[in-house]
Amino acid sequence: MSAAATAGTWRLGDLEVNRIGYGAMRLTGNGMLGNSDGTPIDRDAAVALLHGAFEQGVNHIDTAAFYFSPLRSANELINRALSTWPGDVAVVTKVGPARDVSGEWIAGVRPDQLRGQVEENARQLGRDHLDVVNLRAGGLGTDSVAEHFGALAELREAGLIRHLGLSAVRPEHVAEARTIAPVVCVQNAYGLDWRRADENGLVDLCAELGIAFVPFFAVSGRRREAAASREGDARVRSVARAHGATPAQVRIAWTLHRGPHVLAIPGTANPAHLTENIAAGRLRLTAEELSLLDGPAPQPRPLTR
């Protein structure tokens, strides 16, 4: 059994994937913000990293056309890696938000502009159709997802998209979208420090409906795109010590314990961290540890060097 398969599998429509996947947001530098110094990531190193993920059983990768930094795009790097990889990898991308060539965000994307975004993702990835496309609600300029999701449903009917999902949404958006077309996954910010999807019932709703729930920022929490820093939660450090694990592994394992429908897409450009993240699928937390982590977080103390 591969390392990524130790947490089990889930189906995105007719695509069976290991629950441990890979998020490409950090592949070109510091997330969607790009490298702060403008230095492009080495292409060969990036391809080697992706091949390393695939070799460890990752067969589900999350990306977007707006993941780019100077001279590099995540989609371009994924395309190059997949072109020399013999196995099957489900690629999940997202549309809605967009950035211009200078990296500035474009607000208020119209439904009729989504076809161009879908075609751009397909072109960059070197594919004639996309496995899964998530509609990301943030930045649409409207509270309803119906028109935008309907536009994607038409592209699904035309064969450009295999399956549809949602990102950065509320439970009512899921209900609204499902009246238009099937939803195979929901991708929202979620983790030990960011549990809104528990508070509004979204995680449990996805379980009831058989929809994959895919947390992002599960490791970084409210630091979002910020670079990794020392673990500030003593509970996480304690559980990590008990298992001989890293705090990041504990955070990933905590999300996976929320249910078999929860997937993980931790991202990194560091090969050692990649292996650690994938190995988190083997980590089994005890009931006592889950109770500790599920409780209210203690007031953080200032970290000293």
Rank of each mutant, 00 (worst) to 15 (best):
A4I: 11
T6Q: 06
A7Y: 05
R11I: 03
G13A: 04
D14V: 10
E16V: 13
V17I: 12
I20R: 03
G21P: 00
G23P: 09
R26T: 00
L27A: 09
T28E: 11
L33T: 13
G34K: 00
N35K: 14
D37V: 15
I41H: 09
A46K: 03
V47D: 07
L49K: 01
H51W: 08
E55L: 02
Q56W: 10
V58P: 06
H60P: 02
F66I: 03
Y67T: 00
F68S: 06
P70N: 10
R72H: 12
I78P: 11
S83T: 15
T84N: 10
D88W: 15
V89F: 13
V91T: 05
V92M: 15
D100V: 03
E104L: 04
W105G: 03
I106M: 04
G108F: 03
V109R: 12
R110D: 09
D112E: 12
Q117D: 08
A122D: 04
H129V: 08
R136F: 07
A137D: 00
G138R: 12
G138I: 14
G138L: 15
G138H: 14
T142D: 13
S144F: 04
E147P: 04
H148V: 11
F149M: 10
A153P: 14
E154Q: 12
E154C: 06
E154T: 09
E157I: 05
A158I: 07
H163E: 15
L164T: 06
L166F: 01
L166V: 14
E172P: 06
H173C: 04
H173M: 03
V174P: 01
V174C: 00
A175R: 14
E176T: 05
T179H: 12
A181Q: 12
P182E: 15
D198W: 06
G201A: 07
L202I: 05
F213W: 02
F213K: 01
F213A: 07
F213N: 00
V219P: 00
A226Y: 13
S229P: 04
D233M: 08
D233Y: 07
D233I: 11
A234R: 15
A242R: 10
A242T: 08
T246I: 12
T246D: 00
A248C: 06
A253E: 00
T255E: 08
H257T: 10
P266K: 09
T268M: 01
T275I: 10
T275E: 02
A279S: 13
R282H: 11
R282L: 01
R284M: 08
T286M: 07
L292H: 02
D294M: 03
Q299L: 12
R301G: 08
R301E: 15
P302E: 05
P302L: 06
P302W: 08
T304Q: 11
